[in-house]
C-alpha cells in the first residue's frame, strides 16, 4: 500500500444518537499519518463514543468516515447509504489497533497467547513468526519475563502494556487509545505513558482519549477539546494549554489542572 493518500483517517459530520440523546453532534476530523492527537474534555462529552465509532464498535447515526481517503462508511438517519465492500472494510479495520480503558485481555490465555491470538487466527500468520514478533513486542513494553503468565497475575499497568502489545501485533497503522490510564492506580500510570510516548516517538499515528494533561502537552501534535458532542476547540498543545480561546476550555483546564 503506497502512501498516496492525504489523510489516513477523516470524518465528516459524524453524529451519533443513543435514543433521543445526541452524543455526537457534528464531528469533523482529519488525521495525517504520523500525527499524535489527544482528545480531552469533560466526561460525557462523547470522546469515547467518537473513538469507538471509528473502529465500528458503535454504529454512527449519520456522517462519513474515510480511511486512506476512501469512503469507508456513509450513513444517514441510521441507514447505511454507501460503504466499501465488507472484505475491504475488514482489511482497513485491521489497520486500527484499539486499547481499552479496562484492558480487556483474554483471561484464559497467557500473555504471549493474548498477543499471538489475532495474528494467527485472523491474519493466518505462521505461529513461530508471530511468536517471535510477540516476544519482541513484549520486551518493547518491558514484559518479556511475563510471557507465560495469565493476565490475572499482572498489575493493571502491566495488563495495559500487554494490551498495547496485543494491538501492535497486528501491525496497525493507527492506534486508538480509549482512556488507557483511567482505570489504573496512580503509581502504575507512568509505565503505560512511557510506552505510549515511545510509540509516539517511533512515528505511530495515534488518537488518544485521555485525562493525562501532562502527556497531552508533551506528546501530542494536536489537542482536541470536546464538550457536549462537538469539538469545541482544537490546536497545538501550546495553543490549548497556554492560551485557550474558548470559555469552556478554560474552565475545564482550570478545574483539571487545579486538582
Amino acid at each position: 500500500m503506497s502512501e498516496s493518500y492525504e489523510y489516513i483517517l477523516k470524518t465528516e459530520h459524524v453524529r451519533k444518537n443513543f435514543g433521543s440523546l445526541e452524543v455526537l453532534k457534528d464531528i469533523n476530523l482529519s488525521v495525517k499519518k504520523g500525527e499524535v492527537i489527544c482528545i480531552i474534555g469533560p466526561s460525557g462529552a462523547g470522546k469515547s463514543t467518537f473513538l469507538r465509532s471509528l473502529n465500528q464498535l458503535e454504529k454512527i447515526t449519520s456522517g462519513k468516515i474515510f480511511i486512506r481517503d476512501e469512503l469507508f462508511l456513509h450513513r444517514e438517519n441510521d441507514h447505511t447509504v454507501d460503504r466499501l465492500p465488507r472484505e475491504k472494510q475488514q482489511e482497513l479495520l485491521l489497520e486500527m489497533g484499539m486499547v481499552f480503558q479496562r484492558f480487556n485481555l483474554f483471561p484464559h490465555k497467557t500473555v504471549l497467547q493474548n498477543v499471538c491470538e489475532a495474528p494467527i487466527v485472523v491474519k493466518k500468520e505462521k505461529k513461530d513468526v508471530v511468536e517471535a514478533r510477540a516476544r519482541e513486542l513484549l520486551s518493547r513494553v518491558g514484559l518479556s519475563e511475563k510471557a507465560d503468565e495469565y493476565p490475572s497475575r499482572l498489575s493493571g499497568g502491566q495488563q495495559q502494556r500487554v494490551a498495547i502489545a496485543r494491538a501492535l501485533a497486528m501491525n496497525p497503522e493507527i492506534m486508538l487509545f480509549d482512556e488507557p490510564t483511567s482505570a489504573l492506580d496512580p503509581e502504575l500510570v507512568g509505565d503505560v505513558l512511557n510506552v505510549m510516548k515511545e510509540l509516539a516517538g517511533s512515528g505511530m499515528t495515534m488518537l488518544c482519549v485521555t485525562h493525562e494533561m501532562g502527556f497531552a502537552r508533551d506528546v501530542a501534535d494536536r489537542v482536541l477539546f470536546m464538550a457536549d458532542g462537538i469539538i469545541a476547540e482544537e490546536g497545538t498543545p501550546e495553543e490549548i494549554f497556554g492560551n485557550p480561546k474558548v470559555e469552556r476550555t478554560r474552565n475545564f483546564l482550570k478545574s483539571v489542572l487545579e486538582v
Binding site: 473502529n55 465500528q56 464498535l57 475488514q90 479495520l93 485491521l94 486500527m96 489497533g97 484499539m98 481499552f100 479496562r102 480487556n104 485481555l105 483474554f106 491470538e117 489475532a118 487466527v121 485472523v122 491474519k123 494490551a163 496485543r166 494491538a167 497486528m170
Partner: peptide, 11 residues
Amino acid sequence: GQFEAAKALGM
C-alpha cells in the same frame, strides 16, 4: 469488553 476486544482485533 471481551467481545469488543475480539472485534477490535478483527476476529
